[in-house]
Design a protein around this nucleic acid. Structure first.
Length: 321
DNA sequence: AAGAAGCGCAACCGCAGCAAG
DNA sequence: CCTTGCTGCGGTTGCGCTTCT
């Protein structure tokens, strides 16, 4: 007999979160910080189980989340990290700032899997071309010699390092979103404010005179919309202008407004020990072994090497095995 | 224009790891 | 050292939206 579920199923709401619930949760976490999820439903009055609250926070409401529009860079990193780490999405997410494990997992399952399958199909046609896909390194190594597989793996590793390196150097050299489709934001909190602004915007719309959708669909579409939109360009305005209406409706306190005006508070409130979704550059987490050698090796990488055109494995990768 | 099929994403479920008692 | 409970993770599902016929 397994353990009972984390919450009794009676009286627990399921399904999409409403903006009202989101606001309550955000307000609560603003005051108390993330963690102690067990207490969240009781303290907030939310009819959700603790798991659901945590999931909603980490995958949607948490500061610093970027949604949709994966850049080519991120795509490559995911592919290579997946080749290295397997389906350890949380680990992969820790190398992709602003992305959640769920997002990466979804993107992998919906886009990259197919892409790699296609690439693998082309690969098979072209004999044993090396191209660093997860499938190519995991499923095909039965049919190739150990030496070939080793070289392939090393190439994968090198590619992953390079991708990471490039992504990180981009981050450092250009902290204000160098991505091709840069969302309008200025830092980790900004995207959270953006999320919340969107949330409030859609919520106000859905509750206002021009209401056009049901609550649940508003939550899904209004919040999930991640492509650049006019509301993003003016989100600074939105987040503040919608505050008063939002608060009056849910009896929220100024703490939420304070959050919007004081970006760093979220960072400092974050529990340092168990929020491993936060990217390495945001928290002062110790470097993992992998991270360490990724960074160590980064110094030796020739910048002009193309991502997809690495012919020779680096000698130092051999030390890893 | 309407229906069907496919796609993408948010959320749920169950298991595993870990820490506290 | 064992038990219990909480949190985190990965797999999976359900539903809304978009595209195709």
């Amino acid at each position: 007999m397994g353990r009972p579920p984390c919450c009794d199923k009676v009286g627990v709401k399921k399904g999409p979160w409403t903006p009202e619930e989101d606001i309550i949760l955000v307000s609560y976490i603003q005051e108390n910080g993330p963690g102690n999820w067990r207490a969240v439903p009781t303290n907030t009055g939310l009819l959700r189980c603790s798991k659901s609250c945590r999931l909603r926070w980490t995958n949607y409401l948490r500061p610093g989340i970027k949604r949709g529009n994966f850049t080519e860079q991120e795509e490559k990193m995911i592919i290579h990290l997946q080749a290295l780490l397997g389906n350890r999405w949380a680990a992969i997410a820790s190398y992709l700032p602003q992305r959640t494990d769920n997002d990466i997992k979804n993107y992998w399952n919906t886009h990259l899997k197919k892409k790699l399958k296609k690439m693998q199909g082309e690969d098979n046609a072209n004999a044993d071309n090396i191209n660093g896909g997860a499938n190519s390194s995991s499923s095909s190594h039965h049919s190739i010699s150990k030496g070939q597989w080793e070289r392939r793996l090393q190439t994968d590793i090198h590619l992953a390092k390079q991708a990471l390196c490039e992504a990180l150097s981009l981050d450092k050299s250009n902290p204000v979103q160098p991505a091709p489709n840069p969302p309008v934001q200025t830092g980790p909190y900004a995207s959270s404010a953006e999320n919340i602004a969107r949330l409030l915007e859609s919520w106000v719309k859905s509750n206002g005179p021009t209401r056009s959708n049901s609550e649940t669909t508003t939550t899904q579409t209004g919040l999930a919309g991640s492509t650049s939109s006019p509301s993003e360009a003016t989100f600074d305005h939105s987040i503040f202008s919608y505050n008063s209406e939002a608060f009056s409706a849910v009896e929220s306190k100024p703490v939420f407004a304070r959050a919007a005006a004081a970006p760093p508070t979220f960072q400092t409130q974050t529990k340092p020990n168990n929020d491993n979704i936060a990217p390495p550059h945001e928290t002062q987490m110790p470097l993992t072994l992998l991270e360490k050698w990724l960074f160590d090796d980064a110094a030796n990488v020739q910048p002009q090497d193309g991502i997809m055109g690495i012919p020779v494995p680096l000698p130092e990768t051999a030390e890893l095995f």
